[in-house]
């Protein structure tokens, strides 16, 4: 009964989890495309700088990156509020991962597709949006699905900033009730959310059935 009484608290935590997840996706996926292009640029300086950024993001823990932004940046006068810190850290981190997925997707498109477009006199932007991008999206959906579901679970790292996400709510009530039941509720909620997201991604993948 106690668990049912606490349900609104869990749902508050879930709201923060899903809100952060959605904001990060909406920002990082569109950002990742230009990053993937710059990373593939023939200009060695910009390509190298982008590779360095991606290496740092992949080579250090997200938790550490968040601590750096929240506790380190104020030293040089840059202060973010807690939730903004989480958004900034996640967006910078996930953009790097998505960019690498998109880069591999773009590379997997046969160069004959670009050449066919060139022979037909189709402009590069038209060819990209009508031909290359749809094929790239289809190729990267499974890898993107992985990242998108991992992101749901990664949002639990915001406990370090004192934000009340789903897992933190579970931990608080597990302590106060001296019971594992809140963790079970949290686990079930995560599982439901991730299952719904996975099904959605599967549907998108099937819609590219040509």
């Amino acid at each position: 009964m106690e668990i049912i009484r606490l349900m609104p608290r869990f749902l508050e935590g879930l709201q923060l989890t899903i809100g952060l997840w959605a904001i990060v996706l909406v920002l990082s996926i569109p950002l990742a495309f230009p990053v993937a292009f710059i990373r593939s640029s023939k200009n060695k300086l910009v390509a190298g700088a982008t590779k360095f950024y991606i290496d740092i993001m992949r080579g250090t823990p997200l938790l550490l990156q968040m601590c750096f932004i929240f506790f380190g940046l104020p030293e040089i006068g840059i202060v973010f509020e807690r939730f903004t810190t989480a958004v900034v850290a996640f967006v910078i981190n996930y953009t790097a991962y998505f960019a690498e997925i998109f880069r591999s997707g773009l590379k997997s498109i046969d160069k004959g597709q670009w050449e066919a477009g060139q022979m037909l006199g189709i402009s590069k932007p038209v060819l990209f949006f009508k031909v290359i991008l749809p094929q790239t999206i289809r190729t990267v959906i499974p890898a993107v699905t992985n990242e998108v579901t991992t992101l749901v679970k990664d949002t639990s790292l915001v406990y370090i900033l004192g934000l009340g996400d789903l897992l933190r709510q579970g931990k608080i009530y597990a302590n106060s009730l001296s019971s594992l039941a809140p963790f079970v509720v949290v686990g079930v909620l995560y599982f439901i959310v991730i299952t719904v997201i996975s099904k959605g991604c599967e549907k998108i993948e099937k819609s590219f059935n040509y």
């Binding site: 597709q113 009508k130 094929q135 289809r138 040509y210």
Partner: peptide, 19 residues
């Protein structure tokens, strides 16, 4: 090098229409 994501008609008409 047909465009696999476009049907036959769109494969043929993409160039003349977009140009």
């Amino acid at each position: 090098d047909l465009f696999p994501n476009l049907n036959v008609m769109d494969n043929i008409t993409l160039a003349p229409v977009s140009r």
